[in-house]
Design a protein around this nucleic acid. Sequence first.
DNA 1: ATCAATATCGATAACTGTTACTATTATTAT
DNA 2: ATAATAATAGTAACAGTTATCGATATTGAT
Lengths: 123, 123
Amino acid sequence: MKHSAQRDAILEELCSRKDHPTADELYWSLRQIMPNISMGTVYRNLSLLTETGQIMRLSYGGADHFDGNPQNHYHLHCTSCNRVYDIEMPMCSKMEEDAEKHSKAKITNHILTFIGICENCQN
Amino acid sequence: MKHSAQRDAILEELCSRKDHPTADELYWSLRQIMPNISMGTVYRNLSLLTETGQIMRLSYGGADHFDGNPQNHYHLHCTSCNRVYDIEMPMCSKMEEDAEKHSKAKITNHILTFIGICENCQN
DNA sequence: ATCAATATCGATAACTGTTACTATTATTAT
DNA sequence: ATAATAATAGTAACAGTTATCGATATTGAT
């Protein structure tokens, strides 16, 4: 894997924000500091960074969102603005053990997403 | 909402299976008993049935899956075959209260998905 | 520093999953 | 029966994403 200024910029931009932008949102932000970065480059690097575990992909239907923090944690998906925010509460890994007791699956991870209305959209 | 044989067939097929098929998988099954049902009809009715709360849509990236049981419950997403199965364990609604304590969001629901290898794919 | 090998780039075409459109058909209330 | 209209099959269009390609940038060896 070779170094690239575009990949650096993508990772830096993503990590500097606490929202969880889509590829498209990220693209338009990056255009302001790197005016001819291309959409393909954004998508390619988001996939690369996801594969190498440096960021996290969030799929809730519609466009994927991306999180600069690759450590598993929980999110709020706001049904009003469609944005995604962190919920800072302790991980509940015990649920994975529970789930293995109730099935014959080998469980490696879990994804917990809360659905509701974010602080902003309540006003 | 008028009655329709196609919608009946879609709902019946979906409820009779314990896997959680995609629109495409459902379409090809239905073609065998209703040879000129169209893809548009499948998609349109899956959306209608989701809106009226008769079924549930599951989005994990890639094609959506559908569940004939609209009551919230937990799933396993197998990373090997990409299929989705039920995990029959008790709902943990307390987590929603926890999440509200840790944020200013108004939470109405939560989606919990376990990631791993299903029984079939372990062999 | 130069060079060869090749990963990455920007641009654009292609692809997948889904929704929208349209003329026709089926259902329903009168 | 008839009129009103929801639903259909078929197809075009769309959104999000991935693949292709010739040009460019990075890297390690000389």
